[in-house]
């Protein structure tokens, strides 16, 4: 739909309501978030015992990517009111009026059904059901139930983002095992400090949008203490892939170093007076948390491809 609008009587602007480009639909899939999801899903698939035909492996990764993106689209549909309030999300296609909300919802639902169905039919139904569960958890439990109600939103809701390596693993093995639950647990414990680091320096925006993130509800000190607790717990948990035999000593050493640096980040955040430093340590911790997950899971693949024999 194209419509002409007069802006203050001075300037004529053409607003293209509901007339998005294909790139706007790609933006609806949260491609940056998808990168991490796809990578951890790929690692689950790569380190799982056994083999999968490359075409089926690529299909499994594609299904994980599409389902994650589709869940993101449904999340944007549901959260379009608060996305319009927060600077971080104001440029998304729905707050800008580029895509009709019902189109975004339909887009998300169709892609979810297609991804889950394709995963089940082409790869196996254990992976398909896990993919469906992850999507449902993200949409119904995190987005619709927890996000606006409790500061524990991303603690529990973080489970949705922890599914991908378990799905990748199930795509190869057709089952859920202790080792894949270990991969799930790593991302589950990584999620709170990752999001709370963001929440610390975006606290005002979350408060304005009425999202009860931990820094908004419990304050900085308690949030920082909890972030430190999670990173300390994550340090030994990062060794689970070594304990369960997925990876070798190279991974274990790397996990200790990476986990130790994550704890150092949390300590720096804990000691920081955010108002004086512009939350520099929190911003650095957020950036490091992304690097941490990429590096940890990357190490798993490298160690595995070397045989993990050390």
């Amino acid at each position: 739909m194209t419509e002409l609008s007069i802006d203050g009587g001075q300037r004529t602007a053409v607003r293209l309501a509901g007339c998005a480009t294909w790139r706007d639909y790609v933006d609806l899939l949260k491609p940056r978030v998808m990168t991490l999801v796809v990578f951890t899903g790929f690692v689950g698939l790569a380190v799982a015992p056994g083999g999968l035909h490359p075409i089926l492996a690529a299909t499994a990764i594609l299904c994980i990517a599409i389902a994650a993106g589709a869940a993101g689209a449904i999340n944007m549909w549901y959260d379009r009111d608060i996305d319009a309030v927060m600077a971080r999300t104001q440029a998304r296609p729905l707050p800008r009026g580029l895509i009709d909300p019902s189109d975004a919802l339909g887009f998300g639902i169709v892609l979810t059904v297609a991804a889950v169905g394709l995963m089940g039919l082409a790869v196996n139904w254990v992976a398909g059901v896990l993919l469906g569960l992850a999507s449902a958890f993200y949409v119904f439990v995190y987005t619709m139930w927890l996000k606006r109600r409790t500061p524990q939103n991303i603690v529990i809701g973080g489970a949705a983002g922890a599914f991908p390596p378990m799905i990748g693993w199930a795509a190869v093995t057709g089952e859920v095992s202790l080792a894949s639950i270990g991969l799930f647990a790593i991302i589950f414990l990584w999620t709170p400090p990752h999001f709370w680091a963001l929440g610390l320096y975006r606290c005002g925006e979350y408060a304005k949008a009425g999202v009860p993130m931990m820094p908004v509800v419990a304050g900085e000190r308690r949030t920082k203490r909890q972030m430190l607790l999670y990173t300390v717990l994550l340090l030994p948990l990062g060794l689970l892939p070594y304990v369960t035999g997925i990876a070798g000593l190279v991974y274990a050493a790397g996990a200790l170093v990476l986990g130790g640096l994550f704890v150092v980040c949390a300590v720096r955040v804990w000691r920081e007076r955010g108002r004086e430093t512009g939350d520099r340590a929190a911003k650095q911790m957020f950036g490091y948390s992304i690097f941490y997950l990429f590096a940890l899971f990357g190490l798993m693949v490298i160690d595995r491809s070397n045989g993990g024999f050390m």
């Binding site: 194209t2 419509e3 002409l4 053409v14 293209l16 480009t21 294909w22």
Partner: peptide, 22 residues
């Protein structure tokens, strides 16, 4: 400063882009 005509052209261009993507 786009006119209404240019707006329609832009809408058509975007529609074509979406169709090709599909």
């Amino acid at each position: 400063m786009p006119t209404q005509d240019e707006g329609h052209q832009e809408a058509g261009r975007r529609q074509r882009g979406r169709n090709l993507a599909i």
